[in-house]
Amino acid sequence: MKNILKIISLIAMSQFFFTDLHAQGYTSIQYHLGIPVGDFKDYIENSSYSGMAIDYNFKVSPSFAIGAGIGWNAFYERKPYATYEDGTASLSGIQYRYSNVMPVHLTGQYFFLKESNWQPYASFGVGTLFSNRTTDMGLYRWNEDAWRFSLKPEAGVTYSPWHFAGLKASVKYNQVFKKPDTDEGHSFWTVGLGVVFIK
């Protein structure tokens, strides 16, 4: 939580400083479809239809912006009745698996067109991902919270027919680095659609 507050503070501070430099700031709010991959997909196969992201970027040059973003997605899957083995132990039942993930990144963003309502861009983020993973089986619950280092390449486009707002579509890949000797992957794709406010 302290890390989140630091990120939010950084965003707020950057807005203050760069407003004086007449930099153009963009705040986007997007709906996020999440698609798990790798070990994460082994845990939960279903895509997440519950998710959103808020990003703030400001242009430090006509084609480059820096900023920060925070997102959230909820993944869920009901595993049918099955037997899980661990050593000599066997446990049978229905599993309900939940994973809430919250990526937080500092980003650099490159715009390919300088003077256009359409602004295709590529972005790269470095940050962290908080995950809350819960497995329910019978009356029992296994719960795990974790922070992981994360990288986020992103590509997208904004369309700004108005001077103060526009639309944004993006594809992001959240590469989440897991601890050695674990299979607790959290990497996932997101497909985002939302609005951009320009200041």
Binding site: I29, Y31, M52, L91, S92, G93, Y96, L139, Y140, V195
Partner: peptide, 25 residues
């Protein structure tokens, strides 16, 4: 958008009692 995103914040859990039965050996 926010409404859509928040839908499913609390995904489904068990609907029937027998879905909570477990067998450990």
């Amino acid at each position: 958008f926010a409404f859509i995103a928040m839908q499913g914040c609390y995904p489904d859990g068990p609907d029937y009692v027998d879905e909570l039965d477990i067998v450990y050996t």
